[in-house]
Design a binder for these strands. Sequence first.
DNA 1: CTGAAAGCGCTTACAG
DNA 2: CTGAAAGCGCTTACAG
Lengths: 344, 344
Amino acid sequence: MASIKDVAAEAGVSVATVSRVLNGHPSVSEGARDRVLAAVEALGYRPNAVARSLRTDQTRTLGLVISDVLNPYFTELARSVEEEARALGYSVIIGNADERPELQDHHVTTLLDRRIDGLLVSPTDGGSPRMLEAARAGTPMVFVDRWIPGVDVPVVRSDGRAAVRDLVAHLHRLGHRRLAIIAGPAATTTGQERVDAFREALGAYGLPLPGHYIGQGDFQAESGRRVTEGFLDLPEPPDVVFAADNLMALGALDAVRARGLRVPEDIALAAFDDIRWFVHTDPPVTAIAQPTGELGRAAVRALVDRVEGRAGASVTLPARLVVRRSCGEPGPDRSPNSVRRSTT
Amino acid sequence: MASIKDVAAEAGVSVATVSRVLNGHPSVSEGARDRVLAAVEALGYRPNAVARSLRTDQTRTLGLVISDVLNPYFTELARSVEEEARALGYSVIIGNADERPELQDHHVTTLLDRRIDGLLVSPTDGGSPRMLEAARAGTPMVFVDRWIPGVDVPVVRSDGRAAVRDLVAHLHRLGHRRLAIIAGPAATTTGQERVDAFREALGAYGLPLPGHYIGQGDFQAESGRRVTEGFLDLPEPPDVVFAADNLMALGALDAVRARGLRVPEDIALAAFDDIRWFVHTDPPVTAIAQPTGELGRAAVRALVDRVEGRAGASVTLPARLVVRRSCGEPGPDRSPNSVRRSTT
DNA sequence: CTGAAAGCGCTTACAG
DNA sequence: CTGAAAGCGCTTACAG
């Protein structure tokens, strides 16, 4: 592969001059510029980004560590992150932690070894040592979706509290009184917050959230199946199951179907995180939709701000309820404005 | 951030010795090794992968350019690729082309500029110039899923012909005679092959595949919707629509639902590529499943073979039909062994 | 406007 | 077993 030396030789100038034209430095004569450009063209020369990074101490690369690529929510997040990063002149390297702390640590380490300029992370647990260390050491970093309390890093996330309240209002209106939740890992903020929001919303209706109606999941489908089976085995099964993410809702659907039961007649279902397929499931699933694309973009902007020496603030965006049929047929709509009845 | 010099100073040895212990070179005295390790620990030193890459001319990184991350098939492929690569000691950088040739070219260029050791690609079109050039220049490369004819690069893919035959047999047995297909872009091999396989299978039953039953899609949901609407507007709409990927099937479902029609009563639906949600759609969708994980792993092995100077051969794996209810209730099963009746 | 030179952080013959 | 030195491909003060 041709190097800058080859180009310099071909153009009859020094490598410094070649470098200058490549980087758009103004003080280069037109003649030199033309000859360099011609040489670049003739040789099919492409600058070696590795060498440039070593020299400039910047890689123009962002690392993104997500909890699970197979989760459509994170896939969409990753996509919007890459898009915004590209618009800002950065590449992104994705590390998929698969909800496993060791894997998360592996990716954080690898990314840091590659000297990425900044790190975007949705932590799988309470805090990988390597990650905490990087944050302390001043590596530009921002949390997206999930975060770690007590770490001084901006957080870009959505607040689902109002949407959960809307959901509970919807459920209550339909006559449901025994509401259960499939929670995410307690070590994650989203794992806790969604349970808290749910409990709080239930409280407003004088409804309890007993321990046996809180199933411990891990944001993966299989745990949703397992927890739902447990609910169905209860002497008094719940009227509705609220899954804290879309994959656990999928598992819940598996469990209900395996028992030969029907949603919503036998048991209602709602999910946190909306995905396109929820329109076509049997029945269409009522869900809380996050502004995923906007979250990804905001997170990148905050991170790039940090990378480039600007402040980079936290952002919180509201989620919203999308009512479909999985909790029962609603009567005439008396819901607040924030409740959108899906038209599909 | 501590550099190798700092470690050398701390340990009281030369940087050469530090490098040797870091790389497991045998000729280092035990004492030196201990002091270096202690210094590494004390300083929290991590080797700079950028510098190492520049020096060794290898990045231990593979590039993966896929057509669309939001397509669950490619998400799963990407995941298995990363998994196998990691097992083999490589990282992977994913570039999402979004089915857009310019974006594909952008990613190929970026990846090459970063001097990845090898490139895995599922081409969006007939051949990005940069990609063809890289292949010609001898960059280790392998095609996965989709490929470009006439380019001397191993291909790892699945052959869906037998499964398509099984599908057509299934459809014919159910009494369907007017079969239509939503094709992928003609510029992609999978876009063409699936139509060819379908036509061939129809031919075996003396059924035609008229031009108006071939809709031109682009593997994205919206095109599936559009094409299906066209089919429904035909004076003689088809009995069944076969979508060449899962996203176009989603679009087809949208279109059917928008008309207030029912699957399979009004029109049957089948899809290439199986996804978990097809079990829970209304109705569950009959699909052709690729051995996606195995494809990803095989592709990585072939690529790493090339990278490390071994041969690296092409691999073709069979796809299989998974019968569900979207084409109608089957009678007693008389299908060949390769036809699996899904139990869900 | 231009070039010679230093240096980014490593690895690796080479000599001892 | 060990270190001094060269060099990977760039960028960038510095001097002219």
